[in-house]
Design a protein around this nucleic acid. Structure first.
Lengths: 116, 116
DNA sequence: TGTCATGTGTAGTATATAGAACACGTTTAC
DNA sequence: GTAAACGTGTTCTATATACTACACATGACA
């Protein structure tokens, strides 16, 4: 599923219960032109900037990291974390690439709960 | 130290032993105009693209992840890894942000050597 | 049945990115 | 002592990014 169609589906689901989730009203709340949001949802243009994606995610109640990933982007704060120690994080991420979800989840929990 | 001055210093160190590391010859090997590399080294323009940084790192015998980080970038392959599982990696990276180098290194080794 | 909101088509814009091309004065090497 | 190599100043360009502005047809709904 593309970024645009995901946004459209999510917004229309919300709209079925709340008419304030019309394209125009969402566009106004997140501070873009309706025509632009229309084109984004239809994939007529590339996904918007990180800042706009964040406002959109907040308005639609979605996880911004997921929405950013669908847009082909990585949150700039994560990039900053990596850039601070590029070799360590590069090795770690390349190690974790092959790992199945459940193993990765164990690592995340171990890091969260263990004392390192 | 900036990207440019780091490249210049590294290149001039190499040049002291090997005249093939003149600005012009490095520029030719990595496929850019000498004037452009000159401006990069002096910080007159922004760091070049990821592809050019990779060629430069290879030519100078440097770690491309480090050079990319100095350029304010994160390797696109690492970004691809994160985008494949954005929530898990976002949580992990934000957990690891505060961790001191030696603790992070232990995590990296544990992930490399342990069976997850 | 008029009006108000809705979604969309077309055109245009400002800024950033990522360089190339050429000319020039200065060293360096033979 | 001159030809080749060197580093750099200036100008220009092509493409991508991230939108705005305006107009228009359609639909809801009172």
């Amino acid at each position: 599923m593309t970024f645009g169609s995901y946004v459209r589906t999510t917004r229309e689901d919300l709209r079925a219960r709340d008419k304030r989730f019309s394209l125009r009203q969402v566009a106004e709340r997140i501070g873009v032109e309706p025509a632009y949001l229309s084109k984004i949802e239809r994939g007529d243009v590339a996904p918007p900037s990180e800042a706009t994606i964040r406002r959109l995610a907040a308005d639609l109640g979605q996880d911004s990291d997921i929405l950013l990933a669908m847009a082909g982007k990585v949150s700039s704060d994560l990039q900053t974390i990596i850039r601070a120690r590029p070799q360590l994080f590069a090795e770690l991420l390349r190690q974790l690439r092959e790992m199945p979800d459940d193993a990765l989840l164990r690592v995340v929990r171990e890091v969260r709960d263990g004392d390192w």
